[in-house]
């Protein structure tokens, strides 16, 4: 190989190195500037409202009273509800697809799951309004809007995320582990429960984290079914609101820079922080469990 050729190869390598670095920097800058902008605008809220009142107040009546607790509670509650309902169901679906279903059923289910992801959220909300709302309303005697319905709709929305990521995780467990379990006289269920699930735990956690991120950030479908009443939910079936729904309903009608508008920005910042801390919390818990195994 002659020297000129080598030099051009090295230059080429260098060029790509810079392209990658620049891309990474751009991505970092974008994320950082979003956080910066949202927090800078949001933190101006506290020129007019006390920090303490904002976080612990339960009465939202702007301009005047800015108690944002009902929205934080609403966001966290619908997310946890969605995970509690959709997580186990999605995991069961993933186990079915990865380990129980005959190949031809998997061939149908796999693309169907992917298709599921592409359904716009307004469609989910619409289904919630026309199918689930009357049922809930019938059994509770109320209007039917509230945390429960939002949780159910979100649970359905996160199913494809949970299923496809968990399925990948389960299928990536080496076949030899499974064979090892069978060779000790384990049944299929024992093998799934005691070997496959523990071995794919990091992947399953990723599935839950992404599902949570989707659930907490979802706006349209939730706004359609939660009732949009800015008060602390008194029950699972009472109309309430979340951080996202309150932002979308008011951001158009509040002038930029006004305390009310700033408060919405601060709520967006809280949304970021809440989802970030949920993710960190889960990672922390799982890493500790994994560390104990070492």
């Amino acid at each position: 190989m002659n020297n000129r050729h080598l030099n051009s190869q090295l230059a080429y390598d260098k060029l790509f190195r810079y392209i990658f670095i620049v891309s990474a920097v751009i991505v970092g800058v974008i994320i950082f500037s979003i956080i910066l902008f949202v927090s800078k605008q949001g933190l101006q809220t506290f020129q007019d409202v006390s920090f303490w009142d904002f976080h612990t107040g339960t009465v939202w009546n702007p301009p005047g009273q800015y108690g944002a607790l009902p929205f934080v509670f609403g966001s966290v509650a619908v997310t946890l509800l969605a995970i509690a309902l959709g997580g186990p169901l999605g995991l069961a679906g993933a186990i079915f697809m990865a380990k129980v279903a005959p190949p031809w059923i998997r061939e149908i289910m796999r693309p169907a799951t992917d298709l599921f992801v592409g359904i716009p959220s307004v469609v989910y909300g619409w289904v919630g309004l026309t199918v689930f709302l009357p049922i809930i309303s019938k059994y509770t005697g109320g209007p039917g809007f509230g945390l429960f319905l939002a949780g159910v709709i979100l649970a359905i929305m996160i199913l494809p995320t949970v299923i496809s990521i968990s399925e990948d995780a389960l299928r990536s467990v080496p076949k030899t582990l499974e064979a090892g379990s069978y060779a000790l006289g384990a049944t299929r269920w024992q093998t799934i429960y005691r070997v496959l699930i523990p071995a794919s735990l990091p992947g399953l956690v990723t599935a839950v984290i992404l599902a949570m991120a989707r659930a907490i950030g979802e706006t349209m479908a939730v706004a359609m079914v939660i009732g949009n009443s800015p008060q602390l939910a008194s029950s699972l079936f009472a109309p309430t609101a979340t951080l996202t729904t309150e932002i979308i309903l008011n951001m158009g009608q509040t002038p930029f820079g006004s305390p009310w508008n700033n408060a919405l920005f601060y709520m967006a910042f809280m949304l970021l922080m809440v989802s970030l801390s949920m993710i960190l919390l889960i990672r922390f818990v799982v890493n500790r469990r994994l560390a104990n195994d070492r």
């Binding site: 080496p174 064979a179 006289g185 384990a186 523990p198």
Partner: peptide, 18 residues
């Protein structure tokens, strides 16, 4: 399942559970 309890197997590559 009972047969495999009586007749166990060790594999080519070590496959300890995690």
């Amino acid at each position: 399942v009972y047969l495999r309890k009586r007749v166990g197997m060790v594999f080519q590559r070590p496959n300890p559970f995690p």
